[in-house]
């Protein structure tokens, strides 16, 4: 699928999802339990997808007749200093997240929060840690 078409479909899909959300909200066909939130989820996702799609379409149109600007944007995105800065910032945030997430987990445990919630958080925490270990191993082999 071409990128331009993908954005068209995204914008269209977003509108459809938004319309579906509005229809569900008006008709109130699903007013039982968790499904009550469905219209709002549809509207939220629809707005987000439509916004993303339209943003990309407008951005592509604006840059269509300006190849120099497109080249400059590409250079900025691939610039090794910019990439290093972004990676360093992400690594710092990851280090911080490990501690903050751990502290939150302990706090929840001390607050006697439902065991399901604590286990979900603990598995998520471990998943992220193992994901990091996996990539460390992968890069050890590659580099």
């Amino acid at each position: 699928m071409k990128k331009s078409h993908r954005d068209d479909y995204a914008a269209l899909g977003g509108i459809l999802l938004l319309a579906l959300g509005l229809i569900l909200l008006k008709t109130e066909t699903m007013s039982e339990g968790v499904l009550r939130a469905l219209p709002y989820i549809c509207m939220g996702l629809g707005c987000g997808i439509f916004g993303q799609g339209m943003g990309n379409i407008i951005g592509a149109r604006a840059l269509k007749n300006d190849p120099d600007r497109v080249k400059q944007i590409e250079i900025e995105q691939q610039d090794e200093r910019n990439v290093t800065i972004a990676n360093r910032a992400k690594a710092k945030a990851f280090d911080m997240m490990i501690f903050v997430f751990g502290a939150l987990l302990v706090t929840f445990a001390l607050m006697n929060v439902d065991l399901v919630v604590i286990l979900l958080l603990a598995f998520t925490y471990l998943f992220i840690v193992f994901y990091s270990v996996y990539f460390r191993g992968k890069y050890e082999k590659e580099m």
Binding site: Q78, D79, R81, N82
Partner: peptide, 14 residues
């Protein structure tokens, strides 16, 4: 220089 090397001007400055 930045354009020739395909990096940003800020990189050259840094």
């Amino acid at each position: 220089l930045a354009a020739a090397l395909e990096v940003s001007r800020q990189t050259i400055g840094s």
